[in-house]
Design a protein around this nucleic acid. Structure first.
Lengths: 207, 207
DNA sequence: GTATAATGCGAGCATTCGCTCGCTTTTCAT
DNA sequence: ATGAAAAGCGAGCGAATGCTCGCATTATAC
């Protein structure tokens, strides 16, 4: 008859109802951040929008920051999945094809959810997630650098770290500014021209 | 004997003591933003650090946002003075010299106060100053574009607006990332190499 | 069926923050 | 010297926020 003393939360703890609750909370946080900005995202309001009580919120997230951190994580993973895939596919391509692909993917990644991207970029310093974002950044740099080194023959003599820094900065900036400034007013034709030109610049620089 | 009825604030209103008070308040705001972040910058605390009472604060700034806006303005003007000067000086130079100068100046401008620059970049959306910043941005774009058009002969055929967008984005990003990531760990040698490489990329792209 | 654990609830506490208002002190033209 | 305007003061109000805690509801094991 001896019951196993269930001191620690059971594995089942995060299932069914509770899993849905957590999802709803993260989703609600993201929506409020996008639609009303960080200051409107009070814990009471997040719980409200999620259709959950504040009490329940605090069973799964120890603080408001933890919620925002969860949203950041989710968004970063989404972007990194795309970028990682692209960087893998690109490994066997010559420089010009590879750069074109990466530029395209960078813009795509930024287009996933531009508003969320912007709000999160603003809030990251506050959440102590800076380290995680830097980790993603380093991962990208490492992969790009590895690619550049593997294709050394096709390029002029260059410092791989420096070249990576400059190329990634430039591509990221073009993608960022394109999506944030031009907003949704982006014809396919314009995107293609932009990709062409950015590719030209980067490839021209590399060889 | 008729006294001039002084209904409107006199021209002397902002002089001597009061001018110093306003300065102290703006300076204190900037310092708190840099050293402790936006959330610690309460009006009470700002007044405290400035050595002024909250009451006095609200005689000169109608709201907390107005204070942050003042800091943003000050910083933007400081940067724009440098950039405007450089863009004027550059008008008569050939592309390679001009680009080099602009890259150098971009990094210099970002180095003025990197931490403040970062905090302000985060807070701008909140203060309704977005329009002003965009105005500065447009000014830079217009000047760069004018330069590019005046030097058309030295370059390949290109769309001036697009080329401006790409070049400004790239240069700004390199400067931004250099200063924010590498922090103060920036030898003169490294800066020079970075300027060399960025210049190479942009000039290579333009012609 | 019933006991126990898991999940959910929401009024309300403690704190912070932006800002006001009645008052005092300083400045300065006359 | 004087009086009025400019500048400064700071206790404290009202609103909002993050979070807690005691209790209610639902799921699960036996």
């Amino acid at each position: 008859m001896a019951r196993k003393p269930p001191t620690k939360p059971r594995k089942n703890a995060l299932q069914a109802r509770s899993r849905a609750t957590v999802d709803a909370l993260v989703e609600a946080t993201a929506r409020i951040l996008v639609r009303e900005g960080f200051e409107k995202a009070s814990t009471n309001r997040i719980a409200d929008i999620a259709g959950v009580s504040v009490g329940s919120l605090y069973q799964y997230f120890p603080s408001k920051e933890a919620l925002v951190a969860a949203v950041i994580d989710r968004h970063n993973e989404e972007i990194m999945r795309i970028v990682r895939t692209a960087l893998t596919e690109v490994a066997d391509l010559p420089v010009d094809k590879a750069v074109r692909k990466l530029v395209t993917v960078a813009i795509e990644a930024h287009r996933i959810n531009p508003k969320l991207h912007r709000v999160l970029a603003e809030q990251i310093p506050r959440t102590g997630q800076l380290k995680d974002v830097e980790a993603f950044n380093r991962e990208v740099h490492t992969m790009v650098r590895a690619y550049l080194e593997s294709r050394r023959k096709e390029m002029r003599k260059l410092d791989p770290a420096l070249a990576t820094f400059i190329c990634v900065s430039a591509i990221e900036a073009v993608a960022h500014n394109t999506v944030l400034n031009q907003a949704e007013m982006l014809s396919e034709k314009m995107v293609r021209t932009l990709v062409d030109e950015t590719t030209r610049m980067v490839v021209g620089y590399l060889r």
